[in-house]
Design a protein around this nucleic acid. Structure first.
Length: 218
DNA sequence: GAGGAGATCGTCT
DNA sequence: GACGATCTCCTCT
């Protein structure tokens, strides 16, 4: 099933975020740190649109802060929030049109020790599922785990071969996508623009109660 | 287990 | 000068 990860093409992101979001689930975010690869599988995203979407940073028009959202597709838009956290988005749509996808949660795939160190959870036990969740189950958490910051990564091309922050496809197939309203916003809060891999344990928020018929996934 | 508050700063009004 | 696409810790039940 899975194969050697391949870089996504820019054309993948040159579409409406609502189209790209569900397809982005199951792909890998890969941080190259020297020889080390730190990777996580995308299990939760939110689409943010342009002027019509009041919750989007692009809604107020183009500013120095959100310029990446208006630029070419496949680039990293990193913003700083609550004076504490960074969050990672990938720009969508062609140069001149605003749109992006917030990466809200990852399932750790490789470099778990490095993630734990970056999160200052050095004594975390990677064999305990509820401990692993603390690494990347939330936008602020995953940015910290991958050492993503605005000064370092904003505007970075995520589909360039030489980039140290990339989006890749290893052939993983998502079985079921669930769609819900977005989290933590007040404007346009009713729009169903949050996409998650149904039943995945690394989705942010309170751990989902597993249904009795839930088949443990591999 | 649930709920609330504090942290802390860039960005825009 | 206000506030935000969040997380953690603390208190109360």
């Amino acid at each position: 099933m899975k194969r050697e990860p391949k870089l996504l093409r820019r054309a993948f992101f040159n579409r409406d975020p609502r189209i790209v979001s569900p397809e982005l689930l199951g792909k890998l975010i890969v941080r190259s740190d020297g020889r080390k690869k730190i990777a996580g599988r995308i299990v939760e995203v939110e689409a943010y649109l342009g002027a019509d979407d009041l919750a989007a940073h692009a809604a107020a028009g183009r500013t120095a802060r959100n310029a990446v959202l208006w630029g070419p597709p496949g680039h990293a838009y990193i913003y700083f929030i609550y004076g504490v956290h960074y969050c990672l988005n990938v720009s969508c749509l062609p140069d001149g049109e605003a749109g992006g996808i917030l990466i809200r949660a990852l399932e750790p795939v490789s470099g778990i020790r490095e993630m734990a160190k970056a999160r200052e959870l050095a004594d975390l036990d990677p064999t305990m599922p509820h401990e692993l969740r603390k690494l990347t189950s939330g936008p602020g958490r995953l940015a910290e785990a991958l050492s993503i910051t605005r000064p370092r990564d904003n505007g970075k091309d995520m589909v360039a071969a030489e980039s140290d922050l990339q989006v890749m496809d290893d052939g993983y197939k998502v079985e079921e996508v669930a769609v819900t309203p977005r989290i933590g916003i007040t404007k346009s809060a009713e729009l169903p623009l949050r996409y998650v891999i149904a039943g995945n344990a690394f989705v942010s928020g309170k751990p989902q109660r597993l249904k009795p018929d839930f088949k443990k996934q591999r």
